[in-house]
């Protein structure tokens, strides 16, 4: 599936704004992303939010990635 990265993460992933990764859930997505681009590991450590068809998941690494879903990686957000 196509995974879209926000700007700073794309820079850490060799400038790729989108990457092709086959993953069943967020955990596998992060593992494969780090294998492919070791530079993204610090971002994963700090926290990456995953938008799946527009719904943002921050911590549920077991969340499935449905076939054909839009996957967009975002910075972990702060709130007040």
């Amino acid at each position: 599936m196509e995974v879209q990265l926000w700007g700073a993460l794309a820079a850490a992933a060799g400038g790729h704004q989108t990457v092709e990764i086959v993953a069943k859930d967020i955990r596998e997505l992060f593992r494969k992303l780090a294998e492919q681009f070791p530079g993204v590991e610090p971002f994963i450590e700090q926290g990456i939010a995953v938008s799946i068809d527009g719904t943002i998941y921050r911590d549920t690494w077991s969340q499935p990635l449905p076939e054909g879903a839009e996957i967009f990686l975002l910075p972990r957000l702060a709130g007040g």
Binding site: Q4, W6, S51, D53, G54, T55, E70, F72
Partner: peptide, 11 residues
Amino acid sequence: KASYGPVYGPI
């Protein structure tokens, strides 16, 4: 497509 990246679901 939201200005921050993803496509919105129902909003």
